[in-house]
Amino acid sequence: MLRFVVRRLLQAIPTLFILSILVFAWLRALPGGPAGAMLGDKATPEKIADLNRTLGLDQPIFVQYFKFLGRVLTGDFGSSLVSNQAVLDEIGFALPATIELSLTALLLAVGFGIPLGYLAARYHGRLVDNSVVIGTLVGVAVPVFFLGYLLKLWFAGEGLGWFPPSGRQTTGIDATEVTGFATLDGLLTGEFDAFGDALWHLVLPGVALATIPAAVIVRITRASVLDVVNEDFVRTAESKGLGRQTVRRRHVLRNALLPVTTTIGLQTGLLLGGAVLTERVFNWRGIGYLLAEGIERRDYPRLQALILLGAVVYVLVNLLVDIAYGIIDPRVRAR
């Protein structure tokens, strides 16, 4: 197992290396540059050239790249051109917010997706099934930001007012920061009002972000269960006279979850994309927020770090999925 993990991580290194080159080139190919964005209205060609010289952007691109690479290898991604803060500090500050949101969405998607998919398959062709299938069709089709605005409109602020419309915490609440994960901090410090408050803020963005992956998980679970119930080994299980629950859990669901696991992994990758939009709608100060601001301002150092970070997360998530897959499928473990 350890060897497998190490091998997979080593395999990721060349990928990350190539990606770093592509990102570097792609950013510099974008129209406009950080100097133009920083100077705004006051930009004149001379001022822009000046600023570019200060930022080192006048040098040939491969010189810039090797300087960048040299610093990255020592763990320095440079400072943001927007905030002047070290990029890694910025990310470290925003990351817990995004992880908290993404995990919430993932839990919602899995927690609702698998049972609903299973129910639909069990009542195949009946009202429950048809309703769920139609629900998923709507679910995958609604754009995240549109759903986000709808949820806000209906359930927050001027609507029913049940949930806060934006942010991670009610301003002025007395919360002690320990890990940066607002819910976890509330629990760790015993400030349960802060915990509840953080949870409350997570509901709407969590639901908005969870909708698409939940719909996809429902559909895959449903299709997979419908396949598995016709498998010969399920008939064998029935021929043993096992209880209905045992047949369902041990024989049907366990096998049906194999393709679902892969889907969850893929959806986690997409979740990162959805998080950018959701964070924007709900004014959620996370990675997506940094990214959107970084793109507008052509903040090269920040964007380079964020995209590489995204790739690392993607590699790790897929590794986790493969490990999970190995745990539930012995045929994979053997390889």
């Binding site: 010969d232 080994f233 024989h251 366990r254 096998n255 194999l258 539930i328 499928d329 012995p330 045929r331």
Partner: peptide
């Protein structure tokens, strides 16, 4: 196919 592939 008559044996469950993921159970011992």
């Amino acid at each position: 196919s008559s044996l469950n592939p993921v159970i011992s």
